[in-house]
Computed example of a mutant assay.
Amino acid sequence: MRSRKERFEEHGARFRRDRAAQESRGAGVPHSHDARTHEGEHDIEHAPHPARERRGAELRLYGLNAINAVFSRRPNAIRKLYLAEARIPALQPLLKWCVANRVGYRVVDELDLHKLASSSHHEGVVADVLREEPLALSTWLRDLPSGPQCAIWLDGVGNPHNFGAILRSAAHFGVSAILLPKHSTLSLSGAAARVAEGGAEAVPLVRLGRDDNAIAQLRGAGFTLAATVVQGGSDVFATPLPERTIYVLGAEGEGMDRELAAACDLRLSIPGTGLVESLNVASAAAVLLAAWKAKRG
Rank of each mutant, 00 (worst) to 15 (best):
I44Q: 05
E41G: 08
L205G: 04
A57Q: 12
G56C: 04
V70S: 02
A27E: 04
I166E: 02
R79L: 06
V248S: 12
P145S: 08
G233A: 06
R52N: 10
G274P: 15
L179W: 11
A262C: 13
H11S: 08
R74L: 04
C98P: 12
N76W: 09
L141C: 11
L81M: 04
Q217S: 14
H49R: 15
S72C: 12
L249Q: 09
G174P: 14
K293W: 05
D112T: 03
N280E: 08
L241D: 02
V29F: 01
I178T: 02
V195H: 02
D143F: 07
Q92R: 15
L188G: 04
A196F: 07
H121S: 10
V125Y: 00
S269Y: 15
W292R: 06
L167Y: 08
R244C: 08
I44D: 00
G274Y: 12
A165N: 04
V276F: 14
V230N: 10
E123I: 01
G26N: 13
G40S: 08
R16W: 11
S169W: 01
N101L: 10
R296W: 13
S146P: 14
L241S: 05
A171D: 01
K80I: 00
P160V: 01
G253S: 06
D212Y: 13
A285Y: 05
G232I: 05
A216F: 12
V236W: 04
G158T: 11
G198M: 03
D143I: 05
T185P: 15
T273H: 10
